[in-house]
Amino acid sequence: MAEWKFLPFAQTALKNLFSAPVTTGYPFEPAQYPDRMRGHVSIQIENCISCGLCARSCPPGALTVDRKAGTWTINRFDCVQCGNCVNVCPKKCLSIVPGYTQPDVAKHSDTFTRPQQPAQAARPGAKPVNDAAKCVYCTLCAKKCPQEAITVDRAAKSWTLDAEKCVGCGLCAASCPKKCITMQ
């Protein structure tokens, strides 16, 4: 009686023995990733302006940006590859690339440092300028500024820019309904 229970297993084993293998010849053949695979976040650090929008939009808090040091850090273990950081990046220096990150025995973070540039050539002509004749002082530019570099006073009809805080991301110009802000 016990032999009859063993036969269905033997039949499956024999079928698998004579069928083609399911696995690929890894590492000799490159991995084929599924169409809907999320991949992992990649950065072109030379294009990053350290605005911090990616870190603010990251649900698990896997990203940190240090503007003064010019660094961008991702904790790969905490990242869920949702793509929020890629969607909000004003300079489009973030992307999700196919493939898995290399496994490791401990949690670690990847830190990327922006290359140093001469002071005058760091961001030529990247500061917003407001045309007061067109401005309606709606405060949208100040609300969109990731560094809070713009101050708008509707009562006094004043628009001021803190040039030290401004990173030149251009979100203020993009959000202006009257198109009175230009990047110069």
Score class of each variant (00 low, 15 high):
132 A>T: 15
24 T>S: 11
178 K>D: 07
83 G>C: 01
117 Q>T: 05
52 G>K: 06
31 A>D: 06
123 R>N: 07
16 N>L: 13
34 P>K: 07
77 F>Q: 13
180 C>F: 07
158 S>W: 07
96 I>M: 14
115 P>K: 06
82 C>G: 02
117 Q>W: 10
20 A>G: 02
40 H>T: 05
126 A>E: 13
99 G>L: 08
51 C>H: 05
10 A>F: 15
10 A>G: 08
75 N>Q: 07
117 Q>D: 00
4 W>H: 14
25 G>S: 09
154 R>L: 02
103 P>T: 14
39 G>D: 11
155 A>F: 04
173 A>Y: 02
79 C>S: 04
157 K>T: 11
35 D>G: 01
129 V>G: 00
153 D>Q: 08
120 Q>I: 10
26 Y>M: 06
161 L>S: 05
4 W>N: 10
118 P>W: 12
81 Q>F: 13
62 A>D: 02
134 K>N: 09
146 P>G: 00
54 C>E: 08
110 D>R: 11
86 V>R: 02
56 R>N: 02
156 A>M: 03
80 V>A: 05
58 C>Q: 04
101 T>F: 11
97 V>W: 06
164 E>H: 10
136 V>H: 09
176 C>N: 04
173 A>F: 06
89 C>G: 05
45 I>Q: 02
19 S>V: 07
183 M>Y: 09
15 K>S: 09
7 L>D: 03
97 V>K: 15
75 N>W: 04
25 G>N: 15
156 A>Y: 03
102 Q>N: 12
14 L>E: 08
17 L>Y: 15
